[in-house]
Every structure is written in structure tokens, then in C-alpha cells.
């Protein structure tokens, strides 16, 4: 009984250990590759999103900061200007607009919704102020207004 169990499980056991090693190396790799990209310095007076989650707790690639420029789309699909492969995100999830020196956000018909400080945002663009917490999929961003 034990013989059979042990003989079978040894393959599984070794596989699991290697999956563990692979997992750690993968996370370290993601860590390094995003750290090296982070090198671009955010210019003064620009507004940007800052990741609040601990990057290691997410198993997909996500940057520490995203510059908003003149407005961006965010979602899982490659067509967006910010692409995040979060399974809880819709392919086109939300958009940031820049109008009259202010940033606005609106939901693009996502499944799981977009939230500012816990309140859901619908299709109507909502203005953003410095320090707002934006939740998209599993990710929490901090909105940092430039200037």
C-alpha cells in the first residue's frame, strides 16, 4: 500500500517542487523586468496612476505607475493604451479623459465595474481628484494629480 502510494507520489512531489521553483523564478523575473521598465522618470506636472497592490501578490504583469497623458483606455485587450492581463478585467474596461485641465474616468461597459473610493462609476465621466482610489478588476490604483 505505502509502496504504491510512495512510488506514485514521488513524481508528483518532485513536479510540485519544480513548479514551486518555477513560480518563484517567474515572479522574480516579473519583478526585475518591471523594475527595469520603471526607470522612465515621471515628469513633473504629469498626472499618473500608482499601483497600491503589492505587485508580488498579482500573478500577471503590471507596472508600478502608469502615466495618463492626454487620456488613455484600460483593459485586457491589446488595443488599449494600458494593457493588463487581469482575468477580472474586461477587454475594454474603462477610459480616462483629459478635459479643461481635469481628468475624468468612465466605465466602458465592463463586467465587474469600475469604482472610485468604493463607489461604482457608470458610463458618465466622473472627475478625478488627487488621492482618489480607483479599483479596476483586482487592481487598486492611486490617482496622483500633477502640478
Amino acid at each position: 500500500m505505502f509502496d504504491i502510494l510512495s512510488s506514485l507520489l514521488k513524481y508528483i512531489f518532485i513536479t510540485i517542487i519544480y513548479l514551486f521553483i518555477f513560480g518563484v523564478i517567474r515572479l522574480i523575473y516579473l519583478d526585475i523586468s518591471s523594475a527595469s521598465k520603471q526607470k522612465f522618470v515621471i515628469k513633473k506636472n504629469t498626472s499618473y496612476l500608482k499601483l497600491i497592490n503589492i505587485r508580488e501578490s498579482l500573478d500577471f504583469k503590471v507596472e508600478e505607475t502608469y502615466s495618463l497623458g492626454k487620456g488613455v483606455d484600460i483593459g485586457r485587450s491589446g488595443k488599449n493604451s494600458i494593457v493588463i492581463k487581469d482575468p477580472y478585467m474586461s477587454s475594454k474596461h474603462a477610459s480616462f479623459l483629459f478635459k479643461d485641465g481635469k481628468y475624468f474616468i468612465h466605465d466602458s461597459g465592463s463586467t465587474n465595474g469600475t469604482f472610485i473610493n468604493g463607489k461604482e462609476v457608470k458610463k458618465t465621466p466622473q472627475p478625478l481628484k488627487d488621492g482618489d482610489k480607483i479599483r479596476i478588476g483586482q487592481i487598486d490604483f492611486l490617482f496622483v494629480a500633477g502640478g
Binding site: 517542487i17 513548479l19 514551486f20 513560480g23 518563484v24
Partner: peptide, 20 residues
């Protein structure tokens, strides 16, 4: 349940080991 999470692998490995 994600297999990509090392801590899950560690838990599974420990379950197998102590089960054995």
C-alpha cells in the same frame, strides 16, 4: 488554486509529504 503561486505549491508539497 493557481498553480503559478509558489505558496500553493508549498502547501501541496507539504500535504503530500505529511500524508505519505
Amino acid at each position: 488554486l493557481s498553480l503559478r503561486r509558489p505558496i500553493n505549491m508549498l502547501i501541496i508539497a507539504n500535504i503530500i509529504a505529511f500524508g505519505l
